[in-house]
């Protein structure tokens, strides 16, 4: 072969450099990130698997030198635990209810925002505000909106929401106070999650909409396409990659729901701390102070499995429906 061709090829070959004495340099440069990842990501991950499959693993007992058998006892305990079933039900319901509602609302708002010219930037900012606000703080505000202040004859206010729906002759409903029903709690939490999830989705979808070539709409207009058909046949397919991204990430986020409930109900995860709104992540956190690391790890892995399956389904569906 030609000498001139060979020479530069050798000089830029990565393999040649890493094989030789320069290899340590690569590892040196990578080391800060690698060390942090090893300590704070990989080790806990592996340890979670180890603890989950160690029967009856207990954080205190291990200090005493006790050893544990390999097995799936932790999983059995978790699955048969009544509280865990409630947590699983709450988590699944939250996902199934809030993801479609927030996605559809976000899409409609994004389309509306995209179609107005004056004040678009201001509205964009207003709609984006919840995203930059602390979710615990928002939760507390939601609690204040729904909560009743005072007891019995001394009730000072039923909360702003009850006051509003009272105008239409509904209520008052006990949304979040002691003795409130599971359904009422669910309503409050779902409202909160939808409200909190919309800004980011609007941002992503609006970005997608603004990237759609205007000529598709002009072509559709000339062909006399109705607004509805344009929306379903052109807009949605063309933003489908963003829709898929938004749906997948919000399902994952939904399964990890925790802080919103803490924000509204406090660490008791329910009115009066009865835990009736607890979620899987909440369950994991509950197990930790009890040194029940085995159960907590098993629950985490179950959550991991669920998210994996749902994401796989999402991926499968979007392969057919998403037009990249």
């Amino acid at each position: 072969m030609n000498k001139d061709l060979k020479k530069p090829k050798n000089r830029i070959s990565l393999k040649g450099d890493l094989d030789g004495r320069n290899q340590y340099k690569a590892w040196l440069y990578l080391s800060p990130a690698l060390i942090l990842l090893l300590i704070f990501s990989f080790y806990p991950l592996i340890n979670t698997f180890r603890m989950a499959f160690a029967n009856g693993y207990n954080g205190l007992a291990i200090v005493g030198g006790e050893t544990f058998d390999f097995g799936i006892e932790n999983f059995k305990t978790v699955v048969n635990y009544v509280d865990f079933k409630l947590c699983l039900k709450n988590t699944l319901l939250l996902c199934v209810i809030t993801v479609p509602i927030s996605t559809v609302l976000a899409l409609l708002i994004a389309v509306a925002l995209n179609s107005i010219k004056p004040l678009q930037k201001i509205y964009q900012t207003i709609f984006f505000l919840p995203y930059v606000t602390n979710s615990i703080a928002i939760g507390m505000v939601f609690n204040a909106m729904f909560t009743r202040v005072g007891l019995g004859d001394l009730i000072q206010t039923q909360g702003i929401i009850n006051n509003i729906i009272g105008i239409f002759g509904i209520g008052p409903i006990n949304f979040v106070n002691v003795g409130s029903s599971w359904g009422a709690n669910m309503f409050v939490v779902c409202t909160y999650i939808v409200w909190n999830a919309i800004p980011f989705k609007i941002l992503v979808l609006l970005g997608g909409l603004q990237n759609v070539n205007k000529q598709y709409y002009e072509a559709a207009k000339i062909d006399g396409t109705s607004k509805l058909r344009t929306f379903f046949k052109i807009t949605i397919p063309l933003v489908s990659p963003m829709l898929a991204y938004v749906i997948i990430t919000s399902f994952i986020g939904g399964f990890k729901e925790y802080s919103s409930i803490v924000g509204i109900f406090g660490e008791g995860m329910g009115p009066g701390g009865n835990g009736q709104m607890n979620t899987i992540v909440g369950y994991v956190y509950n197990m930790l102070p009890k040194s029940n690391l085995g159960n907590a790890s098993a629950a985490s892995l179950i959550l991991f499995g669920i998210i994996l399956i749902v994401t796989a389904i999402n991926g499968y569906v979007s392969k057919k429906k998403v037009h990249y």
Partner: peptide, 14 residues
């Protein structure tokens, strides 16, 4: 009742 062919065709990609 007009047909228009755009410069970059504007065919629906999906």
């Amino acid at each position: 009742g007009v047909g228009l062919v755009f410069q970059n065709y504007a065919l629906y990609p999906h």
